[in-house]
């Protein structure tokens, strides 16, 4: 294809050289023209704020008055702040435990990928939690966990034990919120796998079966490799989802009790924008740290996508 194009170009150039510059370069310019609005918005709303945040993070600013330059003071303070380490640790917990959504979604997708009467209904029921707003999911789980009237309390009482206060106990609170966050995330991974399973080639399954593969072996050597695009997408979405977990925490605990369920994104909001937060500089410093962590993952994802493109899939 490309050789034909260049040949074509060459012959045109030699034939008519007095066309306007635009006409000559039309093929090269057109995609950029179409991309311009998107690039413009991306620059103004994504790239520029990143640099603004970095700039603000070197200042002491209450968001109202004059900002004063403090150099690295915000970062130095961050390194000496217990709440920062609590948030960082919780972010790691979120990252690892949230990834459970990927195998769980796969399992449910495999389970649902059958032809049984009413399967469409079951599928939509399993997908339902993803449709509900995160705020509602958070509220529902807050009620589940309520030690006075929640379902957890009922179960505990049934066994004659006194129920734990999941959201009021620093030891359980983060796990409690992650479980609530997993519910819609599993549904999301499931739907990714369900579409992926549609594209699994039946020939290969058949061939595998002839060679005597079944059960787990079939899954591992025949099905899963074909599901790689879905798995990749599920991991990307889940990792990013874990790092920016915010709404669940805002709804369920507001980072409490006494800051023990904070994560970086909520900590940042609390310092810069909440009722008691007037520290734009400190909040920006947290944002920069969170950005750097995300950057590691995002650049890996971009790199591996680039590699795949180059591989010519």
């Amino acid at each position: 294809m490309s050789s034909v194009e260049s040949l074509d170009d060459a012959s045109v150039v030699t034939a008519v050289d007095n066309r306007s510059w635009y006409k000559k370069n039309r093929l090269a310019i057109a995609p950029w023209l179409f991309l311009t609005p998107a690039i413009l918005f991306f620059l103004v709303y994504v790239i520029l704020p990143i640099f603004q945040s970095i700039w603000i993070s070197f200042h002491d600013w209450d968001g109202l008055g004059e900002a004063t330059w403090v150099g690295l003071a915000n970062y130095v303070e961050l390194l000496d702040d217990d709440r920062f380490y609590t948030s960082l640790w919780n972010n790691l917990l979120w990252l690892f435990l949230f990834l459970l959504a990927v195998p769980a979604g796969l399992f449910i997708a495999l389970f649902l990928n059958q032809t049984v009467f009413g399967m469409r209904l079951y599928k939509s029921l399993f997908f339902f939690p993803f449709v509900i707003s995160q705020v509602v999911v958070g509220l529902i789980f807050t009620w589940f966990y309520n030690p006075n009237f929640g379902i957890i309390a009922e179960i505990w009482n049934w066994f004659g034990a006194s129920p734990p206060s999941i959201l009021g106990d620093e030891r359980y609170v983060t796990y409690g919120i992650i479980v609530a966050g997993l519910w819609p995330q599993i549904a999301y991974c499931m739907i990714l796998y369900l579409t992926g399973l549609n594209n699994v080639s039946p020939d290969q399954v058949e061939a595998g079966r002839l060679d005597g593969a079944k059960g787990l072996k079939m899954l591992w050597y025949v099905i899963l490799p074909q599901l790689w695009p879905a798995t990749f997408l599920a991991i990307v979405v889940t990792v990013i989802g874990a790092l920016r977990s915010f709404d669940m925490i805002a709804i369920m605990t507001q980072g409490g009790p006494y800051g023990s369920s904070n994560v970086l994104s909520y900590f940042m909001y609390e310092q810069a924008l909440s009722e008691y937060g007037f520290r734009m500089g400190y909040g920006s410093a947290i944002a920069v740290v969170l950005f750097l962590i995300m950057l590691v993952f995002i650049s890996y994802f971009l790199w591996s996508m680039y590699q795949e493109e180059k591989g010519g899939h």
Partner: peptide, 21 residues
């Protein structure tokens, strides 16, 4: 939380809650 500056109030009240637990 009105007499103390916002930042101090937030950290202080978290401390009170932690102390109660």
């Amino acid at each position: 939380d009105r007499d103390a500056p916002a930042e101090m109030a937030k950290v202080g009240m978290e401390g009170f809650q932690e102390f109660m637990v």
